[in-house]
């Protein structure tokens, strides 16, 4: 049995992590891969720390051991930093250049976070997913698709499992009409950005 491909999606409730997970899941099915996606629902969704675990390949256990992520996609800097325990020395980390402080709390600066991750000698990719979304949609609502496109461009592991067309087809399963077209555009823009920094 080939090892499963482990993707941790980290962010804040409301940033579209569940949708991101579903797109990856549908793309995996289209690629003929088995997949599990462990989601979080209910109260913890309300602006709290959120993690979604996607495992591509044969197997049933839905949770990724700490240190076993192949790819960590972080939609927010503090949450990426928090979930770094899922990464190991060879994990790719793709992080949105966006820090959203929790109310009434002191917090480290985003540059400190970036420097601290870099000091560990791991592959860190930074993308302004909010900006890509804003440029195309007018709001940050599609930052999730921007970072997905970017992560796909830089992560060969993911490319081995699913093709770009599968991602687009997966979007068609979830969105319709104008929203679908916009999300496809955002995905593409993120992907092109990623190719530049490969």
């Amino acid at each position: 049995m080939a090892r499963r491909y482990n993707i941790v999606l980290a962010g804040v409730g409301g940033q579209g992590l569940l949708t991101l997970g579903r797109v990856l899941g549908n793309a995996a099915i289209l690629a003929g891969e088995d997949v599990t996606i462990a989601e979080t629902h209910g109260l913890s969704q309300r602006g709290g720390s959120l993690i979604v675990q996607v495992r591509i390949g044969k197997g049933e256990s839905p949770m990724i051991p700490k240190g076993a992520a192949d790819l960590l996609i972080g939609l927010e800097a503090l949450e990426t930093a928090r979930q770094i325990i899922y990464a190991n020395q060879s994990t790719r980390i793709v992080m949105n250049k966006f820090l959203w402080p929790p109310p009434l709390a002191d917090y480290p600066d985003i540059d400190n976070i970036i420097n601290e991750i870099r000091s560990r000698n791991i592959r860190l990719y930074l993308v302004d997913a909010n900006k890509i979304s804003e440029e195309i949609v007018g709001t940050i609502i599609s930052a999730n698709m921007a970072i997905l496109g970017y992560a796909y461009a830089v992560d060969e592991g993911l490319q081995e499992k699913i093709s770009y067309e599968h991602l687009e087809k997966a979007l068609e399963k979830i969105f319709k009409g104008k929203v679908l077209e916009l999300n496809k555009k955002v995905l593409r823009k993120g992907y092109e950005e990623g190719l530049k920094h490969k």
């Binding site: 503090l78 928090r82 929790p102 480290p108 601290e116």
Partner: peptide, 17 residues
């Protein structure tokens, strides 16, 4: 797993709000 990051101030908890 990687060691948790050493940051000052530390990463604040983010309970649901």
């Amino acid at each position: 797993p990687l060691e948790p990051l050493r940051l000052e101030p530390p990463i604040p908890p983010r309970p649901p709000v």
